[in-house]
Amino acid sequence: MKIGRDPLVWAAAALTLLTLGMAHTRPLFASWFPELDRPLYEQDSFAALLGAHVLIVALSSAAATLVGVGLGVAVTRPAGRVFRPLLERVAALGQTFPPVAVLALAVPLVGFGAAPALLALALYGLLPIVQATLAGLDALAPELREAALGSGMNPGQVLRQVELPLALPVLLAGVRSSVVINIGTAAIASTVGAKTLGSPIIIGLSGFNTAYVIQGALLVGLLAITVDLMFERLLQRARAWQVR
């Protein structure tokens, strides 16, 4: 694919330019919202907010991936199959709780700031990863495991060298869904004091400043599109690697 036609390049460029050049959009937002004394969010730099947003999403998604894949693998082993229905119910139940409610419950335990946001996002991102892990491992033919065991591999080697590599595209699809969901959900972390791209959105909503809301929402949307396209590229490479 030529660089000039690559949507990932265009999305990443738009995100970078808007993040670094938001200050130059003041005349534009001033003309759109002449009734506002402060049409441009200036309490924090958008570059710093983007970095903090990415960090919170990356840490929470990494935790959700480790826990989700670990639990998914555990309940597909002979000793853990009895717990599979319980895991699926608990993971599904977690998605029924609004992230704001999870944040409200987490604040008394860990205080304000990034900690409750990390906890809430990690819990909220579990379901797609657990489901993808189960689906990916279930899709493998039993004959593959039997052949691997028959070749002298132990169960751990079968998991690491056969099952997980073959299930990788499905696993990546689940992680992709979880991460993109968390990019949008992380915006509400600013309600408990975490610095994210949700800060101008929350302040804009509370202060009836639509310009702030648009500025934050544009960057959140561009970040989600960029990351989604990155995962699409990873999935293409994973599928191409399997064909070899």
Rank of each mutant, 00 (worst) to 15 (best):
K2V: 01
I3R: 13
R5F: 10
D6F: 08
D6H: 09
D6W: 07
W10D: 05
W10L: 05
A11K: 00
A13E: 07
A14W: 06
T19E: 11
L20H: 13
G21S: 14
A23L: 13
P27D: 01
L28C: 13
L28F: 15
F29P: 08
A30M: 13
S31W: 13
W32I: 06
P34A: 10
P34F: 09
P34G: 13
E35F: 09
L36M: 10
R38F: 08
Q43Y: 02
Q43C: 02
Q43G: 08
S45M: 02
F46G: 05
A48V: 08
A52R: 13
I56M: 12
V57F: 09
A58G: 09
L59G: 11
S60V: 00
S60R: 02
A62P: 00
A62L: 06
A62Q: 01
A64F: 01
A64C: 02
A64E: 03
A64P: 02
T65P: 10
T65F: 11
V67M: 01
G68H: 11
V69Y: 15
V73L: 15
V73E: 14
T76M: 15
R77H: 11
R77G: 09
A79S: 11
G80S: 04
V82K: 05
R84D: 10
E88H: 00
R89Q: 02
A92L: 03
L93R: 02
L93C: 10
G94Y: 05
Q95H: 04
P98V: 00
P99S: 05
V100I: 14
A101N: 03
L103E: 04
L109A: 08
V110G: 04
V110F: 04
A114E: 14
P116G: 10
A117S: 13
A117E: 12
L118A: 12
L118S: 14
L119Y: 10
L121Y: 14
L123Q: 01
L126A: 12
L127I: 01
P128Q: 06
A132I: 00
A132M: 04
A135N: 04
G136V: 00
L137V: 04
L137A: 03
L140A: 00
L140E: 02
A141C: 08
E143T: 06
R145D: 13
G152I: 03
P155K: 04
P155F: 11
L159V: 03
Q161S: 08
V162R: 06
V162M: 09
L164G: 06
P165M: 03
A167H: 04
A173S: 10
V180K: 07
I181M: 14
N182F: 04
N182M: 05
I183H: 12
I183F: 11
G184H: 05
G184T: 00
I188T: 01
S190C: 03
K195C: 07
K195N: 10
T196W: 07
G198E: 03
S199H: 14
G204S: 12
L205S: 14
L205K: 09
G207L: 10
Y212N: 15
V213M: 15
Q215S: 11
A217D: 14
A224D: 05
A224Q: 07
I225N: 05
V227S: 07
V227Q: 05
F231G: 09
R233K: 12
L235K: 03
R237C: 13
A238M: 09
A238L: 10
R239G: 09
A240V: 03
Q242H: 08
V243R: 15
R244S: 15
